[in-house]
Amino acid sequence: MATLNKGILGGFSGKVGTVVGANWRGLDIIRSRPKNAKRNPTEKQLEQQMKFKLAVSFLQPLKTIQSMYFGSGSGVKSRVNMAVSYTINEAIQVVVGLPELIYNKVLITRGELTSFQNAVLTTQPGGVLHLEWEDNSTQGNAAPADLVSIVCYCEELKNWEIFEGIVMRSDLMADVTLPAYCLGKTMEVYAFLNNVKQTAASTSFYLGQHLVN
Rank of each mutant, 00 (worst) to 15 (best):
L193I: 12
E188Y: 09
G11F: 05
L121G: 11
I166T: 12
N195R: 08
F52V: 04
E100A: 09
F116Y: 06
N195A: 11
S74T: 12
G97Y: 01
T42R: 10
K63C: 08
L46Y: 06
L9N: 14
V16T: 07
K105S: 11
S13K: 02
S149L: 03
E188R: 13
A200F: 00
T123P: 00
K35G: 14
G111V: 09
G11R: 00
S204K: 11
G97N: 02
D135E: 07
G17T: 00
G127A: 04
N195Y: 09
K105N: 11
I150G: 04
I65P: 05
I92W: 06
H130Q: 07
A180Q: 15
Y206P: 10
I8M: 12
G26C: 01
I92Q: 01
M50N: 10
K6E: 05
I65Y: 06
T186M: 01
S32Q: 14
N141W: 04
G14D: 05
V189N: 13
G14S: 03
Q117C: 10
N36H: 11
E188M: 13
P144H: 08
S67H: 01
F192L: 07
P61S: 10
V148I: 12
R39S: 11
A2D: 13
N213A: 12
F12Q: 03
E164G: 07
N5D: 15
T42G: 14
V19Y: 12
M68N: 14
V76G: 07
H210G: 06
L107Q: 14
V128W: 06
E161N: 12
L147V: 06
K38M: 14
I30M: 04
A143Y: 09
P99M: 11
G14Q: 04
I8N: 11
L98Q: 11
P41M: 00
V76K: 14
V84M: 02
W160F: 08
G140W: 00
A180M: 10
T114G: 06
G111L: 06
G75M: 10
L172C: 11
R39E: 13
L46V: 15
T42H: 09
S13R: 03
G73I: 03
A22M: 02
K15C: 00
L178G: 02
P61I: 07
N40F: 07
I102E: 15
V106E: 00
K197T: 13
G140S: 05
N118L: 02
P61E: 04
V212W: 08
K51G: 03
N118R: 03
